[in-house]
Design a protein around this nucleic acid. Structure first.
Lengths: 208, 208
DNA sequence: GCCATATGTCAGCAGCGCTCACATCGAGGG
DNA sequence: CCCTCGATGTGAGCGCTGCTGACATATGGC
């Protein structure tokens, strides 16, 4: 598309970057994933990409907007992981457990992204929509299906969904918050733990 | 102790504040509680207290240290709430539920403090010790007691404790993260929800 | 080919955390 | 009783940040 002098008088850096917006998003994403959102620095980012420190603001109104874009990307990554996990199962219970595992595993592998997703208090929703709306509907459907099949007791499906989400989200959060009991978990260990706890939820803890 | 001229030639502001350290801690605490940790600003804090912007650094080596002090205070507040809640019960199960309620209620009333406590990744522990060690031992003891009394099934007590913590912590986190389903809960609603979910955990979700 | 527009640059503002040399005060020893 | 010393506060200032506005440059539609 663009044709800059390729091999000639060494490097004549073009005035325009060509694809700065994407480059910024990529770099920001990597930085956040590696070091956390508040290590992100607009000027440094510009330096890395070899542009002036004002350039990024042509593409993102301010730092928050950039972070929001990163968060959205992260959320869609998480969303894909959840979808893939649930597609590989059929009955309601295993499907739910697979999603829990995927969720927890994602946070064990990308704690900073997970934080960003939930800390953003974003304009849109806080909990970024991707992880929420449609997926939530799906979960509820799953629960009702399970109830019809006699696999799940007849409590309020909303409450069951909320409890499941809370358990999963809580385990995930404990990992990123570095709770002593689950600190520095390998993603395999995270998987096991997600399985064990959701299983326990299904079995119940009290005999009352 | 100190005697500054009280009613005389109007206001002769004393050179020394008298109790700057505590005043800083108080002000910082209030600010964080009200607006969140990253709205805290050393210079502004100094202005509020009528001292120079360098003064705070005589008492807190840097901003992180101040925040750590605030976090510690917040954690001990939470700790007291948990203790008071559990002292009012006797049998294991209700005691556990009371603690869950207290935990969730605290976060509904002080979301920013809750965030600070867990985000600090503090030198000491991340999960601030107060909420963790002794209290955790207590929870495990509670579970074993419950098992001996035949109230709780014979799974690994560690796992049961972890699952319970995850559920509670998760519900709390969903509140501060402003999950759409639990956004802007009154502390009474938070109480109800904590009760309902922990009850569900005890009953179990699957019939397997 | 020409112009509107998107995209980049440079210089600079205000605010931040933090530091250093110096001022002021209270307490305790000569 | 004074005098010194350490604790506490001040003022100026450094380096950094996010962000802005005026200006430069490249590019796509006429």
């Amino acid at each position: 598309m663009l044709c800059y002098p390729r091999g000639m008088p060494s490097e004549a850096k073009p005035y325009h970057h060509g694809n700065l917006r994407d480059a910024l998003l990529d770099a920001a994403f990597r930085r956040v994933d590696a070091d956390g959102a508040d290590e992100l620095n607009m000027r440094e980012l510009a330096r890395e990409l070899g542009v002036s420190s004002a350039a990024p603001f042509r593409h993102f109104a301010d730092k928050q907007v950039l972070l929001a874009a990163v968060a959205e990307r992260a959320a869609s990554l998480l969303g894909r992981a959840l979808d893939e996990a649930s597609e590989r199962c059929d009955d309601a219970l295993t499907q739910f457990r697979a999603m829990a595992v995927a969720y927890v595993r994602f946070t064990a592998e990308h704690p900073a992204l997970f934080r960003l997703i939930h800390d953003s208090e974003g304009v849109s929703s806080g909990f970024v929509g991707e992880v929420s709306d449609e997926r939530r509907a799906k979960l509820i459907a799953l629960i009702i299906e399970g109830q019809n099949a006699g696999l799940i007791p007849d409590a309020d499906p909303e409450l069951i969904a909320l409890t499941s989400e809370a358990l999963t989200h809580g385990l995930a959060r404990m990992i990123v918050d570095r709770h002593p009991r689950v600190r520095d978990l390998s993603s395999e260990d995270a998987r096991k733990l997600a399985l064990a706890t959701t299983q326990l939820l299904q079995a119940g803890i009290g005999l009352s």
